[in-house]
Design a binder for these strands. Structure first.
Length: 424
RNA sequence: AGAGAGGUGGCCGAGUGGUCGAAGGCGCUACCUUGGAAAGGUAGUAUACUGGUAACGGUAUCGAGGGUUCGAAUCCCUUCCUCUCUACCA
């Protein structure tokens, strides 16, 4: 959520930013915000004045009661009646205005970073880096869902029986490979200075709101209605919310966290060939990295995260590319996002396996995550996160890119984690 | 899940209707004292919004939300959390 003050002081920047996102009605909504805000502040001021008057009278009344001057006290009491009525009306008005302001602000996405190009869809994303060689597979190369069946390592039908579509069962070496990946990713992250956390997989509405899942993407999360809790769509939510409401010291920066969690997404409206196999699931595993940074350093930190993720993919020897998302494809809460895509050789298409974003103060504002700056004033921190990495598509990539006529080779770095080097 | 107790500032802890944003202590900061340090002394030490160039004001906040009252940390209701005992359980 943008800060009203920021909008007030940087109207043109906000408008230009929203235009890059193709955010419709930007002008109208911003005007609306500014008007509501002005109105709110004016109301606040009048209300404060009336409350100040009431407080003064109350003190006087108290004094009269003490000294036994009941008549004087009662006289003043009558005066408070009118003030009370006024303050009631004003505070109702204030509440209404605050609520509408809040509703308006919730609708406004983050202002994109200056390097973000305008664009409407993923077509307009910029390819800024590629690495790895795409293997030349024979005529008989299979997509991962066929390989999964052939080697009996992932069972989609079994998951359908237990739960429904999009909840696969990993079996034998498939399960072990998945577990190996989790450990490998976590170890790489820890090595890079991230601290490991195991966090809850259900979160309350406050947490989901703070990181931006609510109210914008309510329908995308599974909701446990009995207890009003949400299954996490990403580890970002519980990990970032560990710091909700905190006032930290400047010397605490940077805060680097990592954690493995399953992720649950309803993916309402997704169907077709592109969601086949491991491409899009309702439940999948992911290792996440989260950073809390000083505003001055957050873009350095983002670059660092990108380099870190590159390093992992390089070690896995998988062909990938990095995209800088255009305005239209950048998520609601992000200022700048780099997507990592892995080439799925047998499917002949790129699969998103990671996304690293700087949210600047957008989440921190909702989180009320601040730090004391050098002047001793509190200032919003910057939050960032990225996947390192999303498991199923990496698994799909390994199966497809490492397939041979005899079976599936295991990437060298994973062999110690798997305890085998081949799946037959 | 049942019964009881409780949630106050960075921490401990007082406060059961009036000048309480909140005693006292600890911690922290600055200054004084000292050759230096400790001890001692003095002052300061929450957050948000808001008015003002500033000095300095105003309002709100004693888990959260609502209510009673001229006035609520204090009384009432709802809710969340913690602790103890019982029950249950990995």
């Amino acid at each position: 959520m943008l800060q009203v003050q920021f909008i007030r002081e940087n109207k043109e920047i906000v408008l230009n930013g929203l235009t890059k996102r193709n955010f419709v009605n930007a002008k109208t909504i911003i005007e609306n915000v500014l008007n509501t805000d002005e109105n709110r502040r004016a109301t606040q001021t009048s209300l404060d004045a009336i409350l100040a008057e009431s407080n003064k009278l109350s003190k006087e009344i108290g004094g009269f009661f003490k000294s036994g001057e009941l008549q004087k006290a009662n006289l003043l009491k009558e005066k408070t009646v009118q003030l009370k009525e006024q303050s009631k009306q004003l505070s109702e008005k204030l509440n209404e205005l605050s609520e509408s302001l809040q509703t308006l602000l919730y609708q406004i996405p983050n202002v994109p970073h200056k390097s973000v190009k305008a664009g409407t869809s993923e077509e307009d994303n910029e390819n800024i880096f590629s690495e790895g060689t795409i293997p030349v597979l024979g005529e008989n190369a299979l997509p991962h869902w066929e390989l999964a069946k052939k080697y009996d390592i992932i069972d989609f039908e079994l998951g359908t029986k237990i739960t429904g579509a999009g909840f696969p069962v990993y079996k034998g070496k498939g399960a072990k490979l998945q577990r190996a990946l989790i450990n490998y990713f976590l170890d790489k992250n820890i090595e890079a200075g991230y601290k490991e956390f195991q966090v809850p997989h259900l979160v309350n509405a406050e947490s989901a709101t703070a990181t931006g899942q609510l109210p914008d993407k309510e329908g995308q999360m599974y909701h446990a209605s009995e207890d009003d809790l949400y299954l996490i769509p990403t580890g970002e939510v519980p990990i970032t919310n560990m710091f909700r409401g905190d006032l930290i010291q400047e010397s605490d920066f940077p805060i680097c966290c990592t954690g493995y969690t399953p992720c649950f997404r309803r993916e309402a409206g997704s169907y077709g060939a592109h969601v086949r196999g491991l491409n899009r699931l309702h439940q999948f595993d992911k290792v996440e990295i989260v950073r809390i940074e000083h505003p001055k350093n957050s873009y350095n930190a983002l670059d660092g995260m990108v380099e870190h993720i590159k390093g992992i993919l390089r070690e896995l020897k998988l062909p990938y590319r990095v995209l800088r998302l255009c305005g239209g494809d950048t998520g609601f809460t992000a200022a700048l996002t780099f997507d990592f895509e892995l080439f799925s050789t047998a499917q002949g298409r790129w699969l998103e396996i990671s996304s690293a974003s700087n949210f600047e103060t957008f989440q921190a504002n909702r989180l009320k995550l601040r730090f004391k700056n050098k002047e001793g004033k509190s200032e919003l921190a910057h939050t960032l996160n990225g996947s390192s990495l999303a498991l199923p598509r990496v698994l799909a990539g390994i199966l497809e890119n490492y397939q041979t006529a005899e079976g599936i080779k295991i990437p060298e770095v994973l062999v110690p984690y798997c305890g085998f080097d081949f799946i037959t």
